[in-house]
Amino acid sequence: MFDFFDYMPIQASTWADRVDWMNNWITDVSTICTVAITAVMLYFAIRYRAGKHSAPSSKADHNLNLEIVWTVIPSIVCVYCFYIGFDVYKEMRTPPANATEIGVTGFKWGWNFTYENGKTSSKELVVPVGEPIKLVMKSSDVLHSFFIPSMRVKEDLRGDRYSYLWFTPTITSDEQPGGVFPIFCAEYCGVNHSGMRAGLKVVSRAEYNDFIQERGAIELSPLELGAKLYNEKACITCHSLDGSKVVGPTFKGLYGANREFTEGEPAVADENYLRTSILNAGKQIVSGYQNVMPAFEGQLNDKEIDALIAFIKAQKP
């Protein structure tokens, strides 16, 4: 209508324009009502102010017809708003059978995307343009929420069951500064909640096929792969390489060091210790730290675990 306050992000999904239309319609009606009623209130307050209008000139204390009108009209507006919201939302909750399914795992503090052929990525979710995408999502620790503003979708990730959302991108992300649409975690999940961001890269079908076929990791040495995973799996958020204590212990000089735990006997940090700690950190908590790290069981293959261990071993004191 008037689009008084249209600050919605770029429209990149099939329903984004309808969501924005609805949003602008509600905003416009709200603005008009608020401004009009406030204007009437101010007019009364000035027109009938005590200095000028020393005694009230109306005794009306009710008016049934008026009251019926201002009960019925808001009710109709509300039912209409419910209906338009329901209509589009029903579509948002009904993924088509031919949608491309991509797995999403949320963890403190990052995302893991698993494509149909087993390929994985973390910093960027890559999807083909013009095709329905269904995300099947689960959290490996606390609640998270997957929010893509440009697609107008959001859904929480729980630890006890899968949740889903779907969308059909209408444009590639080349048009977005930075080349990706932002993805945010929208459910508070701890210290680095605000760092739990990723990018949505929308590409052509051909580029998408190339992307999921590409197994670049194979050519990397274990050390290079380990360094890549250190960034992508967000180890970097909690484990420094310069010896400083952040949320978790530093990797510098970790290999071969003596570890003391909140429970149980001290141990030397050897390969087996590192493997256990990566897969299930909660088993043994190093003294002075909290049980924060999610379990990576099932999210890393043997090759990747070996690469991470090689990378940690390389961080000499």
Partner: peptide, 23 residues
């Protein structure tokens, strides 16, 4: 309170809440 109330409509409407929730 009119501003509070009318912005509640955006949040009660399902399709717009999907965008606004937790923002």
């Amino acid at each position: 309170f009119m501003i509070a109330g009318t912005t509640g409509i955006h949040l009660a409407t399902l399709a717009t809440d999907a965008h606004y929730h937790d923002t």
